[in-house]
Design a protein around this nucleic acid. Structure first.
Lengths: 109, 109
DNA sequence: GCCAGATACTAAGAATTCCTTAATTCAAGG
DNA sequence: CCTTGAATTAAGGAATTCTTAGTATCTGGC
């Protein structure tokens, strides 16, 4: 299967990290138990993509921010994974650090 | 319109920042000129959502990372905006800073 | 106020995509 | 082998989006 959608790769990676089967993931994300397995498989194989609400439920179950599923850049994906693992205060610090980097790159071109 | 999809809000905000009309944005994102206006409008009004490929083209035109469209959290959305405005080296620094924050919050719980 | 052009917005059927169902394939143990 | 759980697939029904054509709203000039 050439060029699987980003969504497929990220979903599968996240599911395997957590250690769920396709069916388990689907059921936890409130998909009907009779179609849960097929649907998660279709997402991971790149056959279909879920709507946004489903994506959000999958993200919650897997402990990732929803945007993670849509991040083609691996470095950004890594950053998004970290985002969900730190408390609100640390998130603010991170945003401040990012703003500082903007200033820096603006200055020295 | 109660609870417009995140995508709608982010798309409109990004388009207005850049200063394009709905039609201009659609055409630049390679949508047929006869349907460009209607489609962008449907996205911004939350009537429909685009497929992933279209979302990526819109993101490129608007100078935002694709995941930005799916970020419900405003703080994360701000971070994603910064991401596209800094060079690769600064991105690595940001990821390193984020990793350091994980260590910190792991330690002092 | 009125007009004209640009921009935003909408309805509805055509086109496309996803979801459900039922079944098949694959892998690891016993 | 045989069984069992997990992964995978086909195909039609269900749901969504896209195209088309048109209406509405806004803005500047007169």
């Amino acid at each position: 299967m050439p060029d699987a959608p980003v969504f497929s790769l990220r979903l599968k990676a996240a599911r395997l990290r957590v250690g769920l089967t396709q069916m388990q993931l689907g059921v936890l994300a409130q998909i009907d138990e009779y179609s849960a397995s097929a649907r998660i498989n279709q997402y991971e194989r790149g056959k279909h993509l879920p709507d946004f609400n489903t994506a959000e439920r999958l993200a919650e179950v897997l402990g990732v921010p929803t945007p993670y599923f849509y991040a083609r850049d691996d470095t950004l994906a890594a950053l998004l994974l970290i985002w969900n693992g730190i408390p609100a205060e640390a998130r603010s610090e991170l945003l401040a650090a990012a703003s500082a980097l903007v200033e820096a790159s603006d200055i020295d071109g």
